[in-house]
Design a protein around this nucleic acid. Structure first.
Length: 572
RNA sequence: GACUCCGUAGCUCAGCUGGUAGAGCAACUGACUCUUAAUCAGUGGGUCCAGAGUUCGAAUCUCUGCGGGGUCACCA
């Protein structure tokens, strides 16, 4: 990040000083009470004109069109943009026209926060506008915003560079209104889920993010260290085992929006931290869970988009309940022609070979079936579909199927070719659970670095008894992507993970001062490209002295020129 | 992690087969009392991502690095 200021930044800082000299505080402490918003005015003025005679509104000045003694600006607040009209002699009824001629025309810039009072009217060209009677600077903006213009629904010079947008999301939000809309919808997805669950008596809870054993999922965790306890701690990869402990404790419906952390690759659908909604309900099974899940998704679609059918990319997806249920074996049979039900590990390995799916020695039966489904079937399920009844090997926390051998009572909800939710009748048999954990240990020994750790406290909890329970995890970021029709997880997270910005190497102010350089000349040297003391010392002192004079004139700097002897000392 | 594309003014982008940079918006000076991508006249603004190499000469060619996007691998 450069500390060297651009021409426009210098101009804005000069405007800041000029404002202070006029007795105007560019960052006043006073509250500015408003009684209207942009969208309120645009929506309601026409049918209720009397109520808009005396309005107060605040926001950023986003454009300025000056025509001598009258001007139009666009004011942007949290709700949108409204045009305002300023007339010199209305704004400054007395002799002194400084507020209009100097403050407004010269010292305000695009991006500044201002508050205005006035009355609403309609211009000759038919645009609802505010006739400004008073103008107050609320906060000066020192960095120029990208200027995005639009007309007739077309947008010009929009900032689309993903790096710019994600690193400086605050700017993205200011200049790209549809981004604010997207995040409002993301928020609506979460509140609509909370409403749905709270109405049904569920209890929202918080469980540890820092866990001594990263349990509840198969994934590589982030590891950290607690100094006082002198133990390693893991950032949670899931909260499942903690929520089930709460069911043991006697709650019958708990949920948590769990920020999870997984130390794995990043791409369009993966961020190192992401949010999963999990909920657990006592005395229910996975069949009940499918019914509540399809109702929940229908509810979320209606709450966020007002419709159960929505456009996602080039697909139209209908979230209206109910959704079809297909067993994983039937899915594989339908899309590959292979009947894998009852096959042993060797047979599955052979099927993978025929389908061209690479396998490794560490893959067990469950993993092989998972691979076949993932490669050959998953992408076919565009409309919401429950894939049910998974093999026991890939589901160590799931209750065995009530009627089908070697299967568990589990479903995944597939939408748009991707897994959106994962749920099951929870395994509550502590002896079986211990055996399943031990099988995971064996997988770990075979080299599966995602096999689960054994959580003995969780086993102890199950030994006290857990009622039959249905549980589910829903990927909230991916759900938000669907509901907002975004192609990248980065567009539903305010601050997606990025490699840290590396500033160009710069000497600090103290380094310059240590060379005996007066503070006011430091920006000039930086402007000349001497960002380190080393590069300065490598330069020709005579040339530097001459250039200082040149820049002093060019930048119209009102600071005394140092003598040549003084400058020569900088090089010692 | 692999492959691939990209990095030029505050922003959006030009810049051919090498001759050290242009446009629009933004900014500055001026004109203009209902404009709306306001208009008109004029002016300034650049470590062309960084470093090395080839060359008389590099924004341009080569290599290395940094940052980002896309595809794949891993995963949710």
């Amino acid at each position: 990040m450069s500390i060297v200021l651009s021409e426009q930044e210098l101009q804005r800082r000069q405007a800041l000083t000029a404002l202070e000299q006029l007795g105007i505080n560019p960052y006043p402490a006073n509250a500015f009470e408003i009684n209207a918003t942009a969208s309120d005015i645009l929506e309601n003025y026409e049918r209720d004109k009397l109520n808009y005679k005396n309005i107060r509104i605040a926001g950023r000045m986003m454009s300025r069109r000056v025509m001598g003694s009258a001007s139009f600006i666009e004011l942007q607040d949290a709700t949108g943009r409204v045009q305002a009209y300023l007339k010199r002699d209305d704004l400054c009824p007395d002799e002194d026209k400084t507020l209009y001629n100097t403050v407004f025309k010269k010292l305000l810039d695009i991006g500044d926060f201002i508050g205005i009072t006035g009355f609403v009217f309609t211009t000759n060209t038919g645009e609802i506008s505010i006739h400004v009677q008073e103008l107050t600077l609320l906060a000066k903006s020192l960095k120029p915003l990208p200027v995005v213009k639009s007309a007739d629904g077309k947008t010009f010079d929009a900032v689309t560079d993903p790096e710019f947008r994600y690193r400086q999301r605050y700017v993205d939000l200011v200049i790209n209104p549809q981004v604010r809309d997207t995040f409002a919808k993301v928020s609506k997805v979460k509140t609509s889920i909370r409403d749905f669950l709270n109405e049904r008596g569920a209890l929202e809870v918080d469980t540890p993010v820092l866990q001594p054993i990263p349990g509840g999922a198969a994934a590589r965790p982030f590891i950290t260290h607690h100094n006082a306890l002198d133990i390693p701690l893991y950032l949670r990869i899931a909260n499942e085992l903690y929520l089930k402990r709460l069911i043991v404790g006697g709650y019958d419906w708990v949920y948590e929006f769990s920020r999870n952390f997984r130390n794995e690759g990043m791409d369009r659908t993966h961020n190192p931290e992401f949010t999963v909604l999990e909920f657990y309900v006592a005395y229910k099974d996975y069949l009940w869970m499918m019914e509540i899940t399809e109702k929940l998704f229908e509810h979320v679609a209606l709450a966020t988009n007002g419709n159960t059918t929505l456009q996602v990319g080039d697909q139209e997806i209908n979230f209206a309940a109910p959704y079809p249920r297909v067993s994983i074996y039937d899915a594989i049979k339908e899309h590959t022609g292979f009947e894998v039900d009852g096959m042993d590990e060797g047979g599955l390995r052979d099927v993978c070979k025929q389908l061209g799916i690479p396998t490794t020695e560490s893959m067990g039966k469950g993993k092989l079936i998972d691979e076949i489904f993932g490669e050959q079937c998953e992408h076919h399920y565009i409309q919401p579909t429950f894939i049910i009844d998974y093999p026991v090997e890939m589901s160590p926390l799931t209750k065995k199927h009530r009627s089908k051998a070697d299967l568990v009572e589990r479903f995944e909800l597939m939408v748009n070719g991707k897994e959106l939710a994962n749920a099951y009748s929870e395994l509550n048999d502590p002896i079986d659970q211990r055996i399943r954990f031990e099988e995971q240990l064996k997988l770990m020994e075979r080299g599966d670095d995602e096999a689960m750790f054994v959580d003995y406290d969780f086993l102890r909890a199950l030994e006290y008894g857990m009622p039959p329970t249905a549980g589910i995890g829903i990927g909230i970021d991916r759900l938000a992507m669907l509901m907002t029709n975004q192609q990248s997880i980065q567009d539903v997270l305010f601050f997606p993970q990025m490699r840290p910005e590396k500033g160009v190497k710069h000497a600090g102010l103290e380094d310059y001062k240590a060379q005996g350089i007066p503070e006011e000349w430091i920006p000039v040297l930086q402007k000349m490209g001497f960002n380190t003391i080393e590069t300065l010392k490598a330069a020709n002192p005579n040339k530097v002295f001459n250039d200082l004079g040149g820049l002093r004139k060019k930048m119209k700097l009102d600071i005394p020129m140092p003598t040549k002897e003084e400058v020569l000392k900088w090089f010692e």
